[in-house]
Amino acid sequence: MRRVLPHILLAAFGLLMVWPFLWMLSTACKDYASASTPSLSLWPGMFHWQNLPDTFRAAPFGRYFFNSFLVAGTVSLSVVLTSLMAGYAFARLRFPGRGVLFALVLGSMMVPFEAIFVPNFVLISRLGWYDSYAALIVPWCANAFSIFLMRQAFLALPADFYDAARIDGCGHLRFLFRIGAPLVRPMVITVALFAFLGSYNSLLWPLVVTADGSMRVVQVGLTAFNTDAGVRINLLMCASAIVILPTVVLYFAAQRYFVESALGAGIKA
């Protein structure tokens, strides 16, 4: 009993956690009539595959996915690069103003994004980036939290590594990318995953800086779908499911590398 009790507890709460997903999938499988009939059962009782083509016909989700992947992928890569470099510098290099700069970086975490939204929009427009991939990507290419995490990862490496490499005459850049980066790989994956999720799941910024349908990302497409007159709950759930799916797949793929210790390193200040 004592051995299965934790599993029972975890399963019970786990069911609560995934229950909305199961409900979503179940509703996505139904036709409109049974989807709008109240029911507690999670088993759809039917598989109305027509929902899938219907959803894709209602909005060009193919194009939305292309945009979202392109944007989130580029953001993710850039964030890894900028935070690797800055994190290393803040952890291992000695230079005047290091403390103040780092505090400033951390401080930017505390400014609500909504408060600096319009000044950013004005900047994007003046740069002529309105309705372009640049507007969706560039402002998100660095973020304080990733820099912080990466710095913690480099701090956690034993100092001997650095000293040995320096004695061998290895420059900072070679060390960072050839020796340092592989050593902090769990953190790299973590930062990449979080950056991807953050970009893929963002809504307000893409809504404001893009106009053309060909530049729309999936979250914007989903809200457009939502405001649709006389909304079809089954199609809505189908759309939600296909929007959620890539992040779930990505997480499953990344979790092999995404070990807890990566985040654990972030805590020891």
Binding site: V118, F121, V122, I124, S125, R126, Y130, L207, V208, A211, V220, T223, A224, T227
Partner: peptide, 17 residues
């Protein structure tokens, strides 16, 4: 977007010129 979105977008765009 919907009407509030249009409004926000236009307001911001006016500022951007």
């Amino acid at each position: 977007g919907d009407y509030p979105d249009v409004f926000r977008k236009v307001s911001a765009s006016i500022q951007a010129g």
